[in-house]
């Protein structure tokens, strides 16, 4: 289940790029789901040995991935920490939902992310309410961000 706390939050990893830089584990990039997220958001392919082929930047190191996909990887691979998911654009929303379908994770959102028109499940930690659409989410999240 994906749980989101909206607004300012204590004990959250705010600067996800810095955390990623110093905590990246080599085996993370070997995970097929992580590779799918990198392809889905950055349109980049993991070549192996930590090298990634980006359509814009050429062959890059993992630290040069987009801020959004770095945050997604942390949320998926370090589920016991809460990360600032406002470093993710709306094109990361479906991946957050997929992470939430695989495991229980909590994220911190400081803006209203657009999770799209399809039904989804998101637990709003501020109120304890389970929302299944943007129609339900916007009025609640808008109180906090």
């Amino acid at each position: 289940m994906l749980t989101a706390f909206f607004g300012d939050m204590d004990d959250v990893v705010y600067n996800t790029a810095a955390y990623f830089k110093y905590n990246l584990q080599p085996d993370w990039l070997e995970d097929p789901f992580v590779q799918q997220m990198i392809l889905g958001v950055d349109h980049s392919r993991v070549l192996g040995n930590g090298a990634i082929d980006s359509p814009v930047l050429g062959v890059i190191a993992p630290v040069s991935l987009s801020g959004g996909v770095k945050a997604l990887i942390l949320i998926d691979r370090v589920p016991d920490r809460v990360f600032n998911a406002s470093n993710c654009g709306d094109n990361c929303a479906k991946w957050l939902l997929r992470i939430g379908a695989r495991q229980d994770v909590t994220i911190n959102l400081r803006h209203i992310m657009d999770f799209g028109d399809e039904p989804f499940e998101l637990l709003v930690a501020n109120t304890g309410e389970l929302v299944t659409s943007m129609d339900e989410l916007v009025p609640i999240a808008g109180r906090y961000v």
Partner: peptide, 24 residues
């Protein structure tokens, strides 16, 4: 490989949008 062209008119400009568009 990259080029950015931008114009700034006021004291505060905010850039947001999708991930992987080249902000960072």
């Amino acid at each position: 490989h990259l080029r950015y062209d931008m114009t700034f008119l006021r004291n505060i400009t905010v850039i947001q949008g999708d991930s992987a568009t080249g902000k960072t």
